[in-house]
């Protein structure tokens, strides 16, 4: 029987190629848990976030273990199989390292600014593009152009963003609010159709009060960004 991770890769690839509504396939919902509010400013807590090297070692171990199991069962090439030094086959070392590098690249934001309302969630990320989730008539609205497709939704208490890109690349950000709403975990999973297992890295963020709190800013052409103090 086809393993779940392969099914996921197949679905992701099909979504990526044809722009299918993957939300249904992944069971994401448009309605949120009313008690969850991601709003606010968040800064990365390096001490609690995953170490990319460690995660990479873990992934390599996993792939090797699976390969060895398969070899023992007589399904594969033999002991030590699974990791390939060359670069033309699946699970090659360059592909696995590439996946880790991608995960590092897409999780570099040290500060997040989240606006959360009933109809939308916008995550402004330092040195990266904003992630947006808009809901309409009980369904999330996908963002799509020839360069990629973005869809989001709720998986119980977690907010999930899936980004399907060409080259068989899928990036998922899964946001979970910690106890008392003071901590935010962003689990980023990067999938490639050239690596049999996904690579996940957790980045932990702590809520902080930015210096500009109590200030409402608005953009205008002639005056640029205009900020006024607001008393709550």
């Amino acid at each position: 029987m086809l393993k779940p991770q392969y099914i996921y890769v197949v679905i992701a690839t099909l979504c990526s190629l044809y722009g299918a509504p993957c939300v249904a396939a992944e069971g994401l919902q448009a309605t949120r848990n009313k008690n969850i509010d991601f709003s606010g400013a968040w800064e990365k807590d390096f001490s609690k976030s995953d170490d990319i090297q460690q995660q990479l070692r873990g992934l390599v171990r996993d792939i090797r273990r699976v390969a060895e199991r398969r070899a023992k069962a007589g399904m594969d090439r033999g002991p030590g199989a699974g990791l390939v030094v060359g670069d033309n086959t699946k699970d090659s070392v360059p592909s696995i390292i590439g996946l880790a590098k991608m995960a590092d690249l897409v999780t570099q934001s040290q500060v997040l600014e989240i606006e959360h309302s009933r109809a939308a969630v916008t995550i402004k990320r330092e040195s990266a593009f904003a992630l947006g989730c808009t809901f309409h008539d009980g369904e999330s609205v996908a963002v799509e152009n020839p360069l990629g497709r973005e869809i989001c939704g709720w998986d119980e208490h977690q907010l999930v963003f899936n980004l399907y890109l060409p080259e068989g690349l899928t990036i998922q950000h899964r946001l979970t609010l910690g106890p008392a709403g003071r901590r935010l975990n962003v689990a980023t999973t990067v999938l490639s159709d050239q690596v049999s297992r996904p690579f996940t890295i957790n980045r932990v963020y702590n809520r902080f009060e930015p210096g500009s709190q109590g200030i409402r800013c608005e953009h205008t052409i002639t005056r640029g960004k205009v900020c006024t103090t607001v008393s709550y």
């Binding site: 699946k90 590439g98 897409v106 593009f129 904003a130 080259e167 068989g168 050239q194």
Partner: peptide, 21 residues
């Protein structure tokens, strides 16, 4: 770059990031 290589993935991601920005 080869499909699945960092170069190819980075290029795909950079193109999408460019469109979003």
């Amino acid at each position: 770059g080869r499909r699945g290589s960092f170069t190819a993935m980075q290029e795909a991601y950079a193109a999408y990031r460019w469109s979003k920005v």
